[in-house]
Computed example of a mutant assay.
Amino acid sequence: MSEQFWLVVQYPLKSEKGSQRDHWLREKVMEYLEISLADADLGYVDGFDMGKSTSDPKKYALNVFCVVKEEERGISLAKRVLRESRLDHTRIKIATMPYGKEETYTLKYAYKKGVTDFSL
Score class of each variant (00 low, 15 high):
77 L>C: 00
102 E>M: 06
95 A>F: 01
89 H>K: 11
69 K>C: 05
105 Y>R: 08
114 G>N: 06
84 E>V: 06
94 I>G: 04
100 G>I: 11
73 R>T: 08
106 T>I: 12
107 L>V: 04
100 G>A: 10
100 G>F: 06
117 D>F: 14
103 E>H: 06
102 E>W: 06
69 K>R: 15
93 K>I: 00
90 T>I: 09
88 D>Y: 11
103 E>P: 04
67 V>Y: 00
102 E>K: 14
95 A>E: 01
68 V>I: 15
99 Y>T: 03
117 D>L: 08
76 S>N: 15
68 V>W: 01
78 A>R: 02
85 S>I: 00
67 V>T: 13
68 V>Q: 04
73 R>M: 14
116 T>M: 06
113 K>D: 11
78 A>Y: 02
105 Y>T: 07
90 T>G: 12
107 L>Q: 07
96 T>F: 04
106 T>P: 03
86 R>F: 12
74 G>L: 09
75 I>R: 00
73 R>A: 14
91 R>G: 06
67 V>W: 00
105 Y>H: 14
107 L>S: 05
96 T>A: 04
111 Y>C: 00
88 D>K: 13
116 T>E: 10
99 Y>I: 03
101 K>P: 00
115 V>S: 05
85 S>P: 00
99 Y>W: 15
87 L>M: 10
89 H>I: 09
83 R>S: 12
115 V>F: 09
83 R>W: 12
82 L>N: 03
82 L>D: 05
100 G>V: 05
102 E>H: 09
